[in-house]
Nucleic acid binder design. Structure first.
Lengths: 219, 219
DNA sequence: ATCTGCGCGACTGTCAACAGTTGGTCTGTC
DNA sequence: GACAGACCAACTGTTGACAGTCGCGCAGAT
């Protein structure tokens, strides 16, 4: 029986707060909870089957992530994005990811990094057959990996706190427009630029990618 | 009695959660709560005279800001920064603020922006006589203003979520080292670069400023 | 002396209830 | 019919209490 006990399959005992957080994040970024919707604590806690206190903790986190906004008298509602805000979000995203690309260029041995990024691109390629959502996940995973590989935890954390906003932007613009940005070749260009080790070039490639992406979404 | 009722003096009715948030943030960034200190909910709620539920909401927010970190079994403790993390924080900060500088360069009419930034520098100059903390506040205010003037709310929000980490970095390095970065002239250089409207130059000025600042803190 | 249970104290996860405020509605009066 | 004022329902802010779990120390067996 040693094999079973060593598997540790049931290691992740997530708290109710984390489950609620994930559920709400998903509901908002998929549009199940429409922008502008007023989030009533009592209703939500009932539908999620958790207490208000636990729910409130999760909502604070979502508020900090920018997915929900506070109105007068503490009323929380699903944030609504307009075209300018999407452009602003992608400008910040471009700044963060170009830093990531530049930091990766500074690494002496980039072989492992390049391999990991190629793996992420391959996953994007595979996802093309699986539908829209998997493609979006694969795309976000590529960019998240870009940040993670730098080893700069602050950078990764900042990017992740933007991730919800990015997902909302995609949802707002519509999935059809969003998939235009999932082109494999353009992502391969990013990896190639990093491989050369030219910081300025890599950063500029990212900025161009993001500028085009924002244009695709709102233009 | 119209005068009194119109004064709106008591407009800011801050919730206990916000007060707790401010108090904790201050205690951590001033070192009153040393890095690594385990934050026991029952103790803190008693010393702050609030209930645990309210305290927990504030702690979630601090956790997202990166001021406190979660250990095993949900234990929260004051985050500890090492030299690498400070460099990482300042690299992200540089990326955000150079975006701010670049966006400000794109404005057709920069007169108002330049004036506001000169005002912030003048405040730094005044603060030189007032001691260490006011100088730090004036410095942070300058950089926050830089982000705010872009009108990019996401950028401002990202910067502010980094602000706590910046304050921790300053505390960690010691106030004597930190004030080396408060030089008025070097900040004036930033404003001058923005005034020329040269995006690349302005961004590079910021990056150099931040690189030097990080070096001053940990070098 | 070392190891194995066993309690016990300490803390976090979670919940249900109370209090205060705001906005709407309904009624009575002019 | 319009307006003023008083109820009333709906929410959020805040609290105290209960439950589960982890780590530690102590006693007893080998």
């Amino acid at each position: 029986m040693a094999a079973e006990t060593l598997s540790l399959a049931g290691l992740e005992k997530t708290s109710l707060r984390q489950q609620a957080l994930a559920a709400l994040r998903r509901a908002i970024t998929t549009g199940e909870l429409a922008p502008g919707t007023h989030l009533v604590e009592t209703e939500l806690s009932e539908s999620l089957q958790i207490s208000r206190g636990t729910l409130r903790e999760a909502m604070r986190q979502l508020q900090q992530e920018g997915l929900i906004a506070a109105g007068p008298r503490g009323r929380l509602s699903v944030r609504h994005l307009d075209a300018k805000e999407i452009r602003d979000i992608f400008a910040v995203r471009a700044a963060l990811e170009s830093l990531a690309a530049a930091q990766l260029c500074e690494l002496a041995d980039r072989a492992g990094v390049i391999a990991a990024l190629h793996g992420a691109i391959a996953a994007m390629d595979d996802a093309e057959r699986d539908g829209l959502e998997p493609r979006i996940e694969a795309d976000l995973n590529f960019h998240r990996t870009l940040c993670r590989l730098t080893g700069n935890e602050t950078l990764l954390h900042s990017w992740q706190s933007l991730e919800g906003n990015i997902r909302m932007s995609i949802m707002f613009a519509g999935l059809e427009r969003a998939v235009r940005n999932m082109d494999v070749k353009r992502h391969a260009d990013i990896v190639d630029a990093i491989e050369t080790g030219d910081k300025a070039k890599a950063a500029e490639t990212i900025r161009a990618h993001m500028s085009g992406a924002a244009q695709n979404l709102v233009g």
